[in-house]
Simulated scan of single mutants.
Amino acid sequence: MAETSKLLRVLPEVFQVAADTSPPMQALLAVAEDMHAPVRQVLDVIHTVPDPRRAPASLVPFLSRWVDLDWLTLPGPESSRSGSIPVARQRDLIAAAAQLSARRGTVDGLTRFLHLATGVPGFDVESVPGAFHIKVLIPAAAADQLELVSRIVKGVKPAHVTDELMVRPAGGTGGPGE
């Protein structure tokens, strides 16, 4: 037992020598190893904590706070089932947080954010000429996530810009000229 102890390797040589022949020392090492086992298990996987793809689901809200996405992923007073984001999508948002932050306030950033949060592609944002107003065209597949889309638009668009949400009819693009 004394030769396989991880703890024994870090102890002074006098303890290492004594552990070969001393049953009390062997028992003490066994108890110490058992006491350290839970800590060792955590330390063996600690490198997965900051990785949104590998972190335990219970840590995803914590990671959201690190990258300033907790305003979206943590339940608020107005939160309902339709406004919640599945953990897999939260992981995608956290992984893309730096890119999303760099594009915050842009059409590209808003459409990418909406796609990642809802899991539905095909969002479009139109600027109304001569006004600080945007029209967000929502794919029909995301119509059941209007509360979430609204929270994202309000949280990501520039503060001085007003917004309008419009769900496209199923099967159509709903874009200009249609």
Rank of each mutant, 00 (worst) to 15 (best):
M1Q: 10
A2R: 05
E3M: 04
E3Y: 08
E3K: 06
E3F: 05
K6R: 11
L8D: 12
R9A: 13
V10S: 09
E13W: 00
V14H: 12
V17N: 07
V17W: 02
D20P: 00
T21C: 02
S22Q: 07
S22C: 10
P23W: 00
P24M: 05
M25Q: 14
M25C: 15
L28M: 15
A30R: 04
A30H: 10
A32E: 11
A32L: 14
M35V: 14
H36M: 15
H36W: 09
A37R: 11
A37M: 05
A37L: 07
P38T: 00
R40I: 01
V42C: 08
D44V: 10
D44N: 13
I46C: 03
I46E: 07
T48D: 13
V49E: 09
V49I: 09
P50S: 11
R53W: 13
R53D: 13
R53E: 14
R53T: 10
A55L: 02
A55M: 10
A55V: 07
P56I: 01
A57G: 15
L59R: 04
L59A: 13
V60C: 13
V60M: 09
F62I: 02
F62K: 01
S64P: 07
R65E: 05
L72N: 03
L72F: 01
L72W: 01
T73G: 03
L74M: 08
P77S: 10
E78F: 02
E78H: 03
R81S: 13
G83F: 02
G83K: 07
S84G: 12
I85P: 10
I85K: 06
P86W: 02
V87W: 08
A88P: 00
Q90S: 10
Q90E: 12
Q90R: 06
R91C: 12
D92H: 09
L93R: 00
I94P: 01
I94V: 03
I94H: 03
I94C: 03
A95F: 06
A96T: 06
L100P: 03
L100Q: 00
S101C: 08
A102N: 02
A102P: 01
R104Y: 07
G105V: 04
G105E: 02
T106D: 04
V107A: 11
D108R: 14
D108Y: 10
D108S: 14
L110Y: 00
L110N: 11
L110I: 04
L110S: 03
F113C: 11
L114Q: 10
A117S: 15
A117Q: 11
T118R: 12
V120L: 04
P121C: 01
P121K: 09
G122C: 13
F123G: 07
V125W: 03
V125Q: 07
E126W: 14
V128E: 15
V128T: 15
P129V: 05
G130C: 09
F132S: 11
F132N: 12
I134H: 04
K135H: 15
L137N: 15
P139E: 12
P139K: 04
A141I: 01
A141D: 15
A142G: 10
A142P: 02
A143L: 00
A143W: 00
D144T: 02
L146H: 01
L146W: 00
L148A: 09
L148I: 07
S150F: 01
R151F: 05
R151S: 04
G155K: 04
K157H: 03
V161I: 09
V161A: 00
D163A: 08
P169R: 14
A170R: 11
A170L: 08
G172D: 12
E178R: 09
